[in-house]
């Protein structure tokens, strides 16, 4: 195998999160859905980093106060990702990332017959109905996430 020609180094962070082992290609979606672009702090998104375990992976490093984001979003988008919580330059926690029981306002129901398509101020809520097959359904109309060209 050809040795990798280029190496990108992103420095250590003092306080924040490192989301590692993100399925290659999902990093940008995670970046968007976590609202990282709106944070007033340093964020590094590394895509296609080489990984012995995964071949390729994405990594996100966020330098921010450690109570600032929602683990459920990470669990929903990629529950195989790992998270290191950093404080004082050291890993202080490795929360277990699991599929959340429900997710709020991360994805939208695309069923045109669903009440979420017209009701003002209604949260978009999806509930985990089949953990084995990772099936989420709209709380209101029970449309399966992924059906009807959900994204």
């Amino acid at each position: 195998m050809q040795e990798q020609k280029y190496k990108l180094n992103v420095g250590k962070i003092d306080e924040g999160f490192v989301i590692d082992h993100i399925h290659a290609g999902r990093g940008m979606k995670l970046y968007r859905d976590l609202g990282l672009g709106m944070l007033d702090c340093s964020v590094a998104l590394i895509t296609n980093a080489s990984s012995r375990k995964m071949g390729k992976k994405d990594i996100i490093k966020v330098e921010c106060p450690i109570d600032q984001f929602d683990m459920d979003v990470i669990g929903f988008l990629d529950h195989n990702a790992t998270v290191d919580v950093i404080k004082g330059g050291k890993i202080i926690a490795k929360p277990v990332i699991t599929l959340p029981k429900q997710v709020k306002n991360i994805i939208r129901c695309k069923n045109p017959r669903c009440i979420t398509s017209i009701e003002q101020g209604l949260d978009q809520v999806f509930v985990l109905t089949d953990p084995k097959n990772e099936v989420y359904r709209c709380k209101y109309c029970e449309t399966r996430y992924g059906d009807q060209d959900q994204s």
Partner: peptide, 24 residues
């Protein structure tokens, strides 16, 4: 609209019965 009675139930102070919500 599917799920409309559920929205009603969440904001109601009286019992709500779903008497049919679309094809749901």
């Amino acid at each position: 609209k599917e799920g409309a009675p559920m929205v009603a139930a969440a904001h109601s102070t009286i019992p709500v019965i779903n008497a049919g919500d679309g094809g749901h």
